[in-house]
Design a protein around this nucleic acid. Sequence first.
DNA 1: GTCTATATCCAGATAGAC
DNA 2: GTCTATCTGGATATAGAC
Lengths: 197, 197
Amino acid sequence: MSNSATSRRVQDPRQQILDTVLVLFSERGYFATSVQDISRESGVSVGSIYHHFGDKEGIARALYQTLSERMSHSISRIIAQQGTAHDRCRGIVETLFDMTEAEPLVMDFMLYAKHRDFLPEEKPICSSRPFELMRSVIAAGMKAGEIRPMDLMVASSSLFGGPVRMIVARLDGVLQAPLPRYLDEVWDCAWRSVAAR
Amino acid sequence: MSNSATSRRVQDPRQQILDTVLVLFSERGYFATSVQDISRESGVSVGSIYHHFGDKEGIARALYQTLSERMSHSISRIIAQQGTAHDRCRGIVETLFDMTEAEPLVMDFMLYAKHRDFLPEEKPICSSRPFELMRSVIAAGMKAGEIRPMDLMVASSSLFGGPVRMIVARLDGVLQAPLPRYLDEVWDCAWRSVAAR
DNA sequence: GTCTATATCCAGATAGAC
DNA sequence: GTCTATCTGGATATAGAC
């Protein structure tokens, strides 16, 4: 009656490794983390790690793609739930703030790590799917007249640049209070910067 | 009659090394740059490099401090020249944009590199002198009634977050046009986000 | 102060048994 | 698929002559 689904199963090694490197890369950075470290902390042997990911870069790439998809999903859900650019963008900022408090390491890796240094093939973060989604929301808001007409890159930088800097400050330990406490004030500033009226 | 001052003199090796690592660190990153690389590109021997900087980290630290002082100086000059928070902040953004075009590597290293990975002792960039100066301008502007009263960190993130994201986008090659062309539009958004009226 | 030659270490990656 | 043992290169840093 007891099978692998009912017994408290150990996570599959792939996920085990990804969970481990998220911590290590955030704590020490990619280059200061050796594959030996990853093996020791994850409990998975070096051989298995290479079997699953090919090389060290492959681990970082898999982590990046996994987290990127998670962020895209969260953002897509908000877009589906809300009807205006204002509400959609506010929802996105709120989610980013919540995620930063709940999973600071994820945010650290996605928004703060310099991927170009260890993933030279990857597109720059601001060309990645989550950021594309954000820009598409803004483009729609501009068309609908909610947002003043202007260069799309200027609008998205202005709207999300402030919140992103607050996230970075929080990750750096410069902000003592949790981000959601600043949400209303930050959003007020962000929206004023591009709002039509 | 010809002495070391009149002859076209080779730069002193310290500066030679700093010029070289700025290029290499920006192109490949700190960890992908070996001291051998630095020696080859700068024409200064490995022994001399260690004589001047102690260890590899010392090179990065010296570069960071040099550039940080240069930025602080530029910002201080603008603060002295202008009389209002509005004009001071606009001047700062304009200078940052100009610097990005004239010396992209400097901006890349100062705003984009993740110093924490290779300079663990250094304060986070947003606690560094240039950023402190920017915040002091904003604090004064708030006191003078130019800027709405709000959390200082929120105000500085909102005012400079947009411009910083534009700089990063430009360094990533995502913006084709030079930054100064966007200045008016970017500044308009930035100032609206915090302006009192 | 500058250089070359070298010591030392540890990284990423693989081989091959199980 | 997983593991241990090992290879190999290249990294930081130093020694010591000039």
